[in-house]
Simulated assay, not measured.
Amino acid sequence: MARILIVEDEPAMQIGLKDNLEFDGYSVEVASDGQTGLDKILTNEYDLVVLDVMLPSLSGFDVCKQARKEGNDTPIILLTARGEEIDKVLGLELGADDYMTKPFSVRELLARIKANLRRSSKSQSSNSDTIKIGNLQIQFDAYKAYTQSNEEVKLSHKEFEILKYLHENKGKVVSRYDLLENIWGYEDDQPTTRTVDNFIARLRHKVEVDHNSPEVILTVHGSGYKMIV
């Protein structure tokens, strides 16, 4: 039974989400403010976190940022009443795995939860070998990355998934829409192709000798990206 944490300060929303997730067969815990949510994330093991952005004490963005900074890679779905593109980009760049804008249907949320749990489980059950990608040695199953001098490099859950997908398709052109669909689970241009570009730029700082002249993750203008290893 998957264990899910809901961090939500609106009592009606918290109760409604908890009841629906438990009805769907999940084990559910709740927190009503950001600091309590962060403490639970860092001291317990969850399969997924549903995290509101507007919270007392710490915002959902801050909770996500701190959790990733501490090396916690539990999948996180952000919930917010905001709809601006900049908020979506910020949340995903801070390490969130998915993003839903209120109001939303419970059915859609359950579908997103199942998709994220499925991707997380698949990632953890494969690719046990150490793979060299540019400057890094990657262990996809353990979500670990090291430099050639064996110093650990922090990558977000999404960064690992993007590297894995590019590696599985090495030598092939992967479009931004391919990445949005296969990494974020969207079938159209959401959250935005700019989000993909921002993640690629961050990865190049970690895998390339010179991120301004990439030799591992190449841009194919008008098409997408291609990994050469």
Rank of each mutant, 00 (worst) to 15 (best):
L117G: 07
E84T: 14
K114Y: 06
S105N: 09
K102P: 10
S125P: 07
G95R: 06
Q124C: 00
D97P: 08
S120T: 13
A115P: 07
D87G: 01
E84I: 13
K132T: 07
S126V: 12
Q124W: 00
N127H: 12
L92P: 05
D97A: 12
S123F: 14
T101A: 15
S126M: 11
D97L: 03
P103N: 09
L136T: 04
Q124D: 09
Q124V: 00
S125L: 13
R107H: 07
L117D: 10
K88T: 04
A115S: 15
D129C: 03
R118H: 09
N135T: 11
L117R: 08
R119D: 13
E108L: 12
G91I: 05
L109W: 05
F104T: 05
S123P: 00
P103F: 06
D87C: 01
A96F: 01
K88W: 06
R118S: 08
Q124S: 10
K132N: 01
E85M: 12
K88A: 13
L94G: 11
K102I: 11
K132W: 00
K102S: 14
S126K: 14
D97G: 14
D98A: 11
R107A: 09
Q124N: 04
N135K: 14
G91W: 01
L110H: 02
E85F: 09
L110Y: 01
L109M: 15
K132R: 07
S128G: 00
G91P: 04
Y99K: 01
R112G: 04
G134K: 02
A111C: 04
D98N: 12
